[in-house]
């Protein structure tokens, strides 16, 4: 490499003069260093967030935080209301979003004609780009306003709308990767198309579909904005009553971080550590598997 650079420099020296050649190599070296510094700048915040959440959150992350609800009056107790809320609303959202997303993607990838597929795909992309707080308002207008009651079901629907386009796009993509010869082989054996899709195409594409669904699940776990005007949040432990307000981990972090009381801020850090542990675990587990292949 060094020899090559030297050779290049000497040729350019003869063409443009020594100082110009030197300037070009200096610019080259400076800008390459700058790019490296920029890449470091991207990673430093990741490290800083992780370090501080661990340092301030892990000490606050006790068994009480997970098993006890907030005290009815005063300060203390834990985040059980939020943990249980997240454990209910996110899986319900997944139950709504993953089947719809997968079935919708089957249509786009296997049946839809090209123009139609493009419209659906385009709308999925647009939906990903809509700020999640607007999804909250949208769901508010038809699931909260008519009933005059903030409720957990509306929260689940809002989260499902966040998940849907993610599931759909990743599923569609993994279905496109299924080789056509598999479809042909199945059809040639006389298997009807719907069975071919369900037991050959879908099964082959399953790893990709799972990846997409898990990432969408992790994303929904961390969403706060769509829950603000739907599930609203609650200091009470709510198990199973979807018609009433419900808390969630991100909501708990948000409300407790804004209180001017140190004990509550500490609980926010503890909840943040818990949330981040789960979200990062899902992300690392899922991405690590497909990563080497994708980047090459």
């Amino acid at each position: 490499m060094a020899a090559a650079v030297a050779a290049r420099a000497s040729i350019s020296d003869r063409l443009t003069g020594v100082s110009a050649g030197r300037r070009r190599t200096t610019v080259d070296r400076t800008m390459r260093t700058l790019s490296f510094v920029a890449a470091l700048l991207c990673v430093v915040p990741l490290g800083a967030v992780l370090v501080f959440v661990a340092a301030k959150g892990l000490p606050a992350l006790s068994l009480d935080l997970i098993t006890k609800g907030p005290k009815a009056l005063g300060i203390g107790g834990g985040a059980a209301n939020a943990v249980l809320g997240t454990l209910q609303m996110v899986p319900i959202a997944a139950l709504l979003a993953i089947p719809s997303g997968v079935l919708g993607a089957i249509y786009v990838a296997e049946f839809g004609d090209r123009r139609l597929a493009r419209i659906v795909r385009f709308c999925a992309d647009v939906l990903v780009g809509i700020p999640s707080i607007l999804i909250g308002i949208f769901v508010f207008t038809f699931l909260v306003l008519p009933f005059k009651q903030f409720n957990a079901f509306a929260g689940s629907v809002a989260l499902a709308i966040i998940m849907l386009p993610v599931v759909m796009r990743t599923t569609e993509e993994s279905l496109h990767l299924v080789p056509n010869s598999l479809r042909e082989a199945s059809l040639a054996l006389g298997v009807p198309m719907w069975r071919t899709v369900l037991s050959v195409v879908l099964r082959t594409g399953l790893p990709g579909i799972l990846t997409g669904s898990m990432l969408a699940f992790a994303r929904a776990m961390g969403e706060t904005a769509p829950l603000l005007f739907t599930a609203l949040g609650s200091r009470l432990i709510n198990v199973g009553n979807l018609g009433q307000p419900m808390d969630a981990l991100p909501l708990f972090i948000y409300t407790n971080a804004r209180e001017p009381i140190e004990a509550l801020n500490e609980q926010a850090w503890g909840a943040a550590a818990l949330l981040l542990l789960v979200v990062l675990f899902i992300n690392i587990a899922v991405r690590a598997r497909s990563f080497g292949r994708r980047i090459g």
């Binding site: 991207c42 990673v43 915040p45 990741l46 800083a48 967030v49 501080f52 959440v53 992790a218 994303r219 776990m221 961390g222 969403e223 706060t224 904005a225 991100p250 972090i253 948000y254 971080a257 926010a268 850090w269 943040a272 949330l275 981040l276 979200v279 990062l280 992300n283 690392i284 991405r287 690590a288 990563f291 980047i295």
Partner: peptide
């Protein structure tokens, strides 16, 4: 590249707290 992807996975409210 992996680290940058993880940066995108951190929930917004955690960024807010931090």
């Amino acid at each position: 590249t992996f680290a940058v992807e993880l940066l995108a996975a951190i929930p917004s409210v955690v960024y807010g707290l931090w």
